[in-house]
Nucleic acid binder design. Sequence first.
DNA 1: CACATAATGAGAATGATTCCTATTATTGAA
DNA 2: TTCAATAATAGGAATCATTCTCATTATGTG
Lengths: 144, 144
Amino acid sequence: MQHLEQAVEERLAAAGVRLTQGRRRAVEALAKMRGPRTAAEIHVEVGNTVPLSSLYRSLSVLTDADVLSAQHGSDGVNRFELAEWLTGHHHHLVCISCGTVVDVTPTIDQERAMAQLVEKMADKAGFVASGHRFEIEGTCRTCR
Amino acid sequence: MQHLEQAVEERLAAAGVRLTQGRRRAVEALAKMRGPRTAAEIHVEVGNTVPLSSLYRSLSVLTDADVLSAQHGSDGVNRFELAEWLTGHHHHLVCISCGTVVDVTPTIDQERAMAQLVEKMADKAGFVASGHRFEIEGTCRTCR
DNA sequence: CACATAATGAGAATGATTCCTATTATTGAA
DNA sequence: TTCAATAATAGGAATCATTCTCATTATGTG
């Protein structure tokens, strides 16, 4: 993952912060885990080598620097994942039974259709759209 | 709002719970406020006549009975609104500047396009889709 | 090397939400 | 109507994720 690390380091440098060990660990853990994970899950993944309070701070710094993106969970817990410029644009499928979250990458056509919808709907309300979040709820294969 | 009240009462009866004063107030407040609101906001709207702990319980009961739907907020606060079968299917536009949330109702065509996307993307990941959430981020008219 | 600044650790503090328990309201049966 | 059984509420304590504080440590620069 040399590529990831270098990209992250550059981005952090641009934001004026260092790529320290704690931050590196958080990024690596998230790269390994794929998909949105809570601070607690990351904490476990890094083997408790980083105290929770420090981890939270790292996640916040990384999110501000746009290395990670944060999402709110319906259970009141925030989840983090690598930003889309690192992983590619995607959306989420959430299993309403077990809570698993899976990434789906739309095809070009699908994304085009989505962009069109975004435009039209934003327009109707007098908004200038800058992004969108599309989440599909359903039942995953194993819960079926 | 006779219609609303009766509909809600029937739904609650079906769920085996009563439409008490506290619950009625929560529903009325939400009907008046339009769009997703936090427990604290509702608490103010009902003039603090319902203690927060009771209000939370009411919101939970109403959500379980599908009279309300709950959403997680990126700020870690949950918001509630009348369920779609009472207000019609819609999506949300969120202003990234002032935080305002506005409802947008898609046209039939738009919704059809959306449903198609949902199907395809869920399929790809082996999910059986049961719903979707589409949120557009942008800048509202007054913040522009 | 020495300083100024950035980052960390540990634990306290916060804030939304939930839980607990005693009290009150409601409903159905007699 | 009156009683008993059950549902719901109030109020406060407890929980849990997250943030903050501050003393300590690490890092980059002159």
